[in-house]
Amino acid sequence: MRELLDFLGKRSYVLLFIILEAIALSLIINFNAHQKLIFEHNVDVGFSKVKAANQSVSDYFGLRKANSEIMQENASLRSELKIQSYRLSTPDDTTVFRADYRYISARSIQSSIGRADNFLLLDQGSESGIESGDGVVTEDGVIGIVHSVTSDYARVMSCLHRESRISAKLDGQDYNGYVIWRPYDHRFARLMGIPKNARVSVGTKLVTGNSIIFPEGHPVGEVVDVNLEAGSNFYDIKISLSADMSAIQAVYVCRHKDKDQLKMLLGEGSN
């Protein structure tokens, strides 16, 4: 305290000056119309700058929300687009198989790649309309198939699962095969069931084939190695997955609109 008083005593001249100037300036600002106007304008400008800075900060924190809104819109547009393009390419009277898929945007909240059987957890569940057996894709490629759902979450069997089988075909050819995975490299899988009369070369693109889970023509991967064992009728093809399974964020859950009917018919066949 004494030091403070000593300090103030030493600085009394400057302090007195500051006090007097403060009084004078407050007089200027309060009792002169011209100066008051300028002062208030500058205060306004200052406040609006602070406001703008504050706004940009809250904008940044709002990005996540904006992003999920855009994803939802994207999903609905994507559903719309598939319907439109299918209608354009197919005459109405020959429509036997309506390729109408519904998309629901979701976010992966947990995923693994290092296990022999890998799963993902999505932040949407049956409340959003997800059912078990739905396909899960990103723009880049196929991710997996919904295994089980609760009201708010869904568990997805990743295509990095020993039981996973995803129907796929060579782009531009109609030979259907299926993609399986063997532990543990998350970048590569195998394509089975392609007969040896198909033309397969390294770099051939792979897309989803006829299936009731995934929309036809969605990218799956690319051929990196082709083997044809002596005496076998089928290729053994090593493919690289086009979706980066180690960095999954936003995904779309897709479902055929008439899946129930199709399932019923397929079930009839097996009985």
Partner: peptide
């Protein structure tokens, strides 16, 4: 301040003369 009173510019002369 006294000059300010005359000129009706409260504070302007006071501030500058104090400085």
């Amino acid at each position: 301040f006294l000059v300010d009173l005359w000129y009706q510019t409260p504070g302007v002369h006071a501030a500058s003369l104090t400085l």
